[in-house]
Design a protein around this nucleic acid. Structure first.
Length: 86
DNA sequence: CGTATGACGTGCA
DNA sequence: GTGCACGCCATAC
């Protein structure tokens, strides 16, 4: 079991459809803490739940950011889904 | 309980 | 346009 904030974050990220990407700031805002984008990344970093497509959460700069399986895998997965284009 | 860290974002030079 | 520094929140130790 996790804290309410983490549960909300997981719930939102889990709703992200394939081929779509959200930024940490967006997720934080949807979670009710628009200033907690930092915590969102921390929670997702510890999250190993395959039900949560945390790789669909990218930075607002358009960069993929990091990934618990290797940032390269994150880019590859997004490319396969066509979320970042070519 | 207090301190340190981190998958970030924005501001300024 | 790029690089550096500061600030915010939650979690882990």
């Amino acid at each position: 079991m996790q804290t309410d904030f983490s549960k909300i974050v997981y719930n939102i990220v889990r709703k992200i459809p394939q081929g779509k990407t959200l930024t940490y700031k967006e997720v934080a805002q949807l979670a009710g803490r628009p200033a907690a984008f930092r915590a969102v990344g921390n929670i997702l970093n510890k999250n190993y739940n395959p039900e949560v497509p945390c790789h669909r959460v990218i930075r607002s700069d358009g960069k993929t950011g990091g990934y618990n399986r290797g940032s390269e895998q994150k880019v590859i997965r997004l490319k396969q889904e066509g979320a970042i284009g070519p």
